[in-house]
Design a protein around this nucleic acid. Sequence first.
DNA 1: AATAATTTTTAGACGAGTCTAAAAATTGCA
DNA 2: TGCAATTTTTAGACTCGTCTAAAAATTATT
Lengths: 225, 225
Amino acid sequence: MHIFAFMLSQAEENYLKAIFKLSEKQEGSISTNSIATEMKTAAASVTDMVKRLSKSGCIHYEPYRGVTLSEKGDAIAKNLVRKHRIWETFLFDKLNFTWDEVHDLAEQLEHIQSDELINRLDHLLDYPKFDPHGDPIPDKDGNFALREQYPLSDMDTDSESIIIGVREHSKTFLNYLEKTGLLLGADIKLLEKFEFDNSMRILINQTKEQTITQKVSNNLFVKKK
Amino acid sequence: MHIFAFMLSQAEENYLKAIFKLSEKQEGSISTNSIATEMKTAAASVTDMVKRLSKSGCIHYEPYRGVTLSEKGDAIAKNLVRKHRIWETFLFDKLNFTWDEVHDLAEQLEHIQSDELINRLDHLLDYPKFDPHGDPIPDKDGNFALREQYPLSDMDTDSESIIIGVREHSKTFLNYLEKTGLLLGADIKLLEKFEFDNSMRILINQTKEQTITQKVSNNLFVKKK
DNA sequence: AATAATTTTTAGACGAGTCTAAAAATTGCA
DNA sequence: TGCAATTTTTAGACTCGTCTAAAAATTATT
């Protein structure tokens, strides 16, 4: 990971993160409007900011045509993701915060300016590859670990799998998972699929039977056992 | 420690910290000019800010008469000191940063908004009473541990003592201490005092003899053995 | 292809936090 | 006590990040 010549403000960093997130699930350039939606801010504010980010070389911006991350902006965004996920792992592993508590704190901590600090946390945590949500932690060079993950909804009846992540990170969802015991590492046997509403009956950790909706199975990542 | 009704900006927090620091070594009200010097900022900026802090009830401000911390401002400042010193202890104890590296990082980390995070770090560190510089860490209610400390310059010839803190926190000084082995916990025997320039000859950890200037002995806190 | 609907940008304003230069108040001193 | 020196505040300006409302450009539709 390089040292970045001039420091960005927290606001600038948050915009880069949002653009990175949108670029992940959408090819091509990102519209200012979609950034505004993602950041819960006015479109005019986005236009102002993308001009600044363009001037500092973090993004490519063409009026009315949206933006794309430059190589520099992409590296900064990936470093932010790395910092966020390492902090989440620290909070979860070392300070016993719960799955759904870590995000908001990491949102603050990711802006601390020190690569050395992150690298030492990484070492303390023994170089984790995935955060408490099951999301991969990029290494110093921005490389994400591949994982063989599938949405639970893709699995076959009678198959067994292990929960390794979530797609949806909303508090309400994480809370639901916590309460029902659908935790990271839990063993899931798919007992039955109901075609009429795509819900399914599952066996959690060989003990607890439960019916879950498609919304839940769509948003749970598992790996085959 | 209370939960503070409305959140302060980092700038506001830094002003409160500066006022707290100045109040510690000076009775009565604090002049805007001394705040400007402490914060390395223009006096006019201080006037603007103290008006804001006064409006939010953190300080008492009378034009041309300086400021004093309100009970609320005092509690906020002490909480910042607590956060700063707990982060320093974490960085030193758990991440093996050196004495002189921890300050700048803690300066950023102290602004993270979460008392729960600090309390859990406190627990992880086993409720330390002093930070790596030997400064006392206030508890949740803002109470500082008393320590029986004296500047090394106050000790008598032939006395033995242990280094428990520093007064001056400049990088150059901390660096000097690191290099010469004058570390926290080091055993110091005072061999000789030279009246003409107030320098002294000391024995460090029963092994290393060294001459130090008054500037050094003034700024090293020790406890009697 | 012309017009309607939508998206995006511009224009102008605001608050926070900072600055310099000038004015006002306080303090020190003869 | 009155003038000089110092401290402090005011005035006005600037940047960053945000907003709303209006204008301009793009896209969709008939």
